[in-house]
Simulated scan of single mutants.
Amino acid sequence: MIQEQTILNISDNSGARLVKCIKVLGGSNKFFAKIGDIIKVSVKTCNNNSKIKKGQIYKALIIRTKFGFNRKDGTRIKFNDNSAILLQNNENIISSRIFGSILKEIKSEKFSKLISLSNDII
């Protein structure tokens, strides 16, 4: 579960390394975000030669959490880190590669490209 002030790793080749959640999107009373939710983030650290700079505000899609994810068949999947990928303001993916594994439940009409960019699908 991701809330405001949570530090997340970035698992794509956009140039950012660490981001901080500044707002959970999806309603005025929504305080926590889970896998597949969209949040607003601020870039804390980034690579030297990237278009993304420290302090910029982006949307991000959460792809891994330490809290875990319950599937309909009763299994629970947990990861070792909180991780996200950066999105443009019109919710298109910025990067061209995704590192690490992602869940197949993230696939939707908006993020169908996401499945083809990752190397591990759980």
Rank of each mutant, 00 (worst) to 15 (best):
I2Y: 05
Q3E: 15
Q5D: 15
Q5Y: 15
T6N: 14
I7R: 13
I7Q: 14
S11P: 01
S11I: 09
D12F: 04
S14W: 03
G15H: 05
R17F: 06
V19F: 05
V19D: 03
K20L: 04
I22K: 14
I22R: 14
K23C: 09
V24G: 00
V24N: 00
V24L: 00
L25T: 13
G26F: 08
G27Y: 12
G27H: 14
G27V: 11
K30I: 14
F31L: 14
F32E: 13
F32D: 10
A33K: 01
K34C: 06
K34H: 11
K34I: 06
I35H: 01
I35K: 01
I35R: 02
I39R: 02
I39D: 01
K40D: 15
K40P: 02
K40C: 10
V41Y: 06
S42Q: 15
S42G: 06
V43K: 01
K44Q: 12
T45D: 11
N48F: 09
N49I: 03
N49S: 06
N49F: 07
S50L: 02
K51D: 08
K53W: 03
G55R: 07
I57Y: 03
K59Q: 13
A60L: 04
A60N: 06
L61F: 08
I63V: 15
I63H: 01
I63G: 00
T65Q: 06
T65D: 04
T65A: 08
F67Y: 11
G68Y: 04
F69M: 11
R71W: 08
K72V: 08
K72G: 03
G74W: 12
G74I: 10
T75F: 10
T75N: 13
I77M: 11
I77P: 02
F79H: 10
F79M: 07
F79N: 06
N82P: 03
S83V: 10
A84Q: 02
L86I: 12
L87C: 12
L87K: 08
Q88T: 15
N89H: 13
E91V: 08
E91D: 15
E91Q: 14
N92K: 12
N92I: 04
N92W: 02
N92H: 07
I93R: 07
I93Y: 10
S95D: 02
S96N: 14
R97Y: 12
R97W: 07
I98F: 05
I98E: 00
F99I: 03
F99W: 04
G100K: 05
G100V: 07
S101L: 04
L103K: 06
K104L: 11
K104P: 09
K104M: 09
E105S: 12
I106E: 01
K107F: 05
S108V: 03
K110H: 10
K113Y: 06
K113N: 11
K113E: 12
K113R: 11
L114G: 01
L117R: 04
S118P: 00
S118I: 00
N119V: 01
N119I: 03
N119Q: 09
I121D: 02
I121W: 01
